[in-house]
């Protein structure tokens, strides 16, 4: 399997605060990685650097063969290949669910409206909300909105999917429907980097686990090893609190 994402000695500061310290990470095609760690540990910042929603100041990030830096000319092209799902869904409230899903395919990928709608309905069906296609985001439950956001990202037919705490803003009974959709996606062979505290999901889906603390990757291990015999004390403490 070939590398699709590579981070080398990445450092990032927010003013004086260092959010990422010497982060190294390699992700292969079709690999699923779950990142966990206490809040403020840099998990979100890390994945937001991968599609340059945040800028890193030092080190190299290479996505699908393209170095990402301030010199990158077609950052939009790279972003179009990296889907992202956010904690707060971030659907466009002025557009229907269907229009949310077709907007970028039509205007960024230049598909015709008909093509875009076909793809959109396919993806909405996949996350089981095709019956809500004509409603507006404000009319849907949180779980439905998050699945719509997932469908919207999938409509760009991305090579990589990033998830930034996709279930943290949801009621407990809605978490499952979103996780189910994500498990389904994982089984389809998508490359996924997921920031989440859902350890059940991690055990089921992840190839590798990453534990972050204070901007550093403290531990990276195969999922089984990570849960059964974590090496660092910090990881053990975290797992004992969360499990």
């Amino acid at each position: 399997m070939s590398k699709i994402i590579e981070l080398k000695n990445v450092n990032k500061w927010f003013d004086k605060f260092q959010a990422l310290k010497d982060v190294n990470l390699e992700v292969n095609q079709q690999e699923k990685i779950v990142i966990c760690g206490p809040s403020g540990s840099g998990k979100s910042t890390l994945i937001r650097c991968i599609n340059r929603l945040e800028e890193h100041q030092e080190g190299h990030i290479v996505v699908d063969g393209n170095e990402i830096s301030e010199k990158t000319k077609d950052i939009e092209k790279i972003r179009a290949e990296v889907g992202m799902v956010f904690q707060q869904f971030n659907l466009f409230p002025h557009l229907s669910i269907l229009d949310n899903c077709t907007l970028a395919p039509i205007w960024v990928k230049k598909l015709t409206k008909k093509q875009a709608e076909e793809i959109a309905m396919e993806n909405l069906k996949r996350v089981q909300i095709d019956d809500q296609a004509l409603k507006f985001p404000g009319q849907l439950s949180g779980g439905q909105q998050q699945r719509a956001a997932l469908a919207r990202a999938l409509c760009m037919e991305p090579k990589i999917m990033l998830f930034d705490e996709p279930t943290s803003a949801l009621d407990p009974e809605m978490i499952k429907e979103v996780l189910d959709a994500m498990v389904d996606l994982a089984k389809g062979g998508m490359t996924m980097i997921v920031v989440t505290h859902e350890m059940g999901f991690a055990k089921e889906v992840a190839d590798n686990m990453i534990f972050m603390d204070e901007g550093r990757i403290v531990e990276k291990a195969k999922t089984e090893d990570f849960f059964n015999n974590p090496k660092s004390e910090r990881t053990k403490l975290f797992l004992s609190q969360i499990l």
Partner: peptide, 20 residues
């Protein structure tokens, strides 16, 4: 979040502003 979402879908400055 609206800016983030539009950017993550590959929209540049003008598309992001005009469409979203």
């Amino acid at each position: 979040g609206q800016y983030d979402a539009a950017k993550s879908l590959g929209m540049g400055y003008w598309r992001l502003h005009l469409l979203v």
